[in-house]
Design a protein around this nucleic acid. Sequence first.
DNA 1: GGAGAAATTGCAACCGGTTGAAAGCAGGCT
DNA 2: AGCCTGCTTTCAACCGGTTGCAATTTCTCC
Lengths: 352, 352
Amino acid sequence: MSEEDADSGVLLPHNRKQPVSIYDIAKEAGVSPSTVSRALSKPGRVSAKTEKHIRDAAAALGYSINPLARALLTGRTGTLGLLLSDITNPVYFDLVRGAGRVVSAEGYTLVLAESQELPGLEAQTAERLLSLVEGLVLVGTRLKEEEILRLAERKPVVLVNREVPSLPHVVPDITPGIRDAIAHLASSGHQSVAFLSGPATSWMSAWRWETVMTEALQRGMNVVEIGPGSPTHEGGAEGLRRVLASGVTAVLTYNDLMAIGLLTACQEAGIAVPEDLSVVGFDDIFACDFTSPPLTTIRTPLGSAGEDAFRRLIATVKGLEEQGPSDLTTELVIRKSTSYRRQIGQLGPHSP
Amino acid sequence: MSEEDADSGVLLPHNRKQPVSIYDIAKEAGVSPSTVSRALSKPGRVSAKTEKHIRDAAAALGYSINPLARALLTGRTGTLGLLLSDITNPVYFDLVRGAGRVVSAEGYTLVLAESQELPGLEAQTAERLLSLVEGLVLVGTRLKEEEILRLAERKPVVLVNREVPSLPHVVPDITPGIRDAIAHLASSGHQSVAFLSGPATSWMSAWRWETVMTEALQRGMNVVEIGPGSPTHEGGAEGLRRVLASGVTAVLTYNDLMAIGLLTACQEAGIAVPEDLSVVGFDDIFACDFTSPPLTTIRTPLGSAGEDAFRRLIATVKGLEEQGPSDLTTELVIRKSTSYRRQIGQLGPHSP
DNA sequence: GGAGAAATTGCAACCGGTTGAAAGCAGGCT
DNA sequence: AGCCTGCTTTCAACCGGTTGCAATTTCTCC
């Protein structure tokens, strides 16, 4: 009556159930395996009666297709890859959401991988991922152009926040946002601005700096680049000393995480933001509106970028026409970390 | 002299390079494919001379193994899966980082997928992912016990923040953190507390509520559950009305995102935290120390949980011994969102 | 130098589907 | 009847590796 050695908590070691194959179904239904294959994946190629019979048998046996076996011959795994430098960077939230929306709406499965900002690991991870998926989106990749092109030879590749000639890419136009940010600072009386840059290998960081410089010069402001630095909280905090040393009155950062780090460091150092220093972030991640003070930042539409990138990837995978380039733009979001330039007092050693 | 139609921006349509196989290498090196296979994957099974010869040929041709082909026969894809309900939830940052560390140190590749809190999608995604990986970690899954067991029949599965009999799981002990939080509130004069719960299908939410109730009762406090709600910013904000209606003076939330949402809603509604209402979050995500006020919360060691989960998964995949259960615990982190209970004034309709 | 053991290599089947080509079969037409 | 047409189904090869077994070579030792 009493159960014997039940609930012993022991896990069955390795007796995995072996899955049912089309051969099992074929035997069950009394047809050949190829008929089963066609019944299940080529509607209309077998008679309605046999198809129903086979589908019933498949359902009865609990069949589910082995995607690896299918992919070996056809290349179709039903999955698409998204490779990020750092999944835990909030910048990518919206992008991942947008990607997920499009991918699952099209019946694919999204698989993500991250390279943890390590150059060697990124190439290796991309390599591994590439053989499991039908196509790949690379976001803010640090790979060299040749490496990217080599990947693109094997499977369709779409880039986000990176341009490589002849490869499809989705890059929001950063000029409007930067132009407005510089105008905003200029009209608030700032005459010198610093750009706190990200990793040296980041194409996007280089481009943002380039654009900041161009726009600042057009307004007759002085502008310096400080960096490169890690695109993180810590990276931003570490930049504070050099920002103060430079004597600027306003800073743009490569991304919001750095801006938040800078804000935190300012608080600890007793620098008042925005009274002593104006800070502008980049991307408008989810934490921006509850920092203190709330962060003025340049919003990039990364959700739409993710959607666009995967729409294009799927079009390519399916062999459809290339779509025209997507036109995404950026805009300045003014919160409380920027203000009129105080005329009294001056920061840094450059001013007497 | 001038380049002709260069830079036309046209992408080569679908002429993907077909990859080199072991057969190509075999031909190149003048041996049989099986020897190539052994040379590359079974060190010592072929003579040193041939092995070198084959490796040279492989390198010359730029060979890289096709993991699908290998996996079809052996089941080894070299990848491990991590399935989350929502990748963009900052709760998982540390977990993903910990997982990444262990997985890449062991030579595997981590692939992530998310179920976007949709029950149907989670089962389907798990199914797809399962056939691509050697083992799977499910975090805070909403799947039903039978569904989880069915997955575990096919490949090794490890659970985080969820218990299922006979399956390995990693669940930090929430009791110490909750006990300290309740003690902290009690000693500050609070006599009633609410728990703002997460999704109805979340095992972890149910357990947290259960523990909060037990601990509160032991202290003689009144305690109510408010929910279920979405485990997000919005979910927290939406809970405010009912929190106020209940007349409690302190709230614990299912997670930090909800606590932050609650904080934001309080600010908008003119409720002072912590003077009018004390708020305690759960997990200690990265944004907690720059909310206003900074959030008191119960820290869960999700980084270690991720590491542990994958260490166990890898041990199982490799057929090693089961390790003993990992003992992870939680602790209260006191910041500024909790305080002594104001004796003057009372919130909500229950007090005259 | 030769028997026997050990190391090395090749053959062929296999994993689980897919697909071109051929075979089987029913119905329509002269 | 005989033949052609078109639909349904099967045969067999294939994708790219892996592996048990057997064949071949090399080594060892008497």
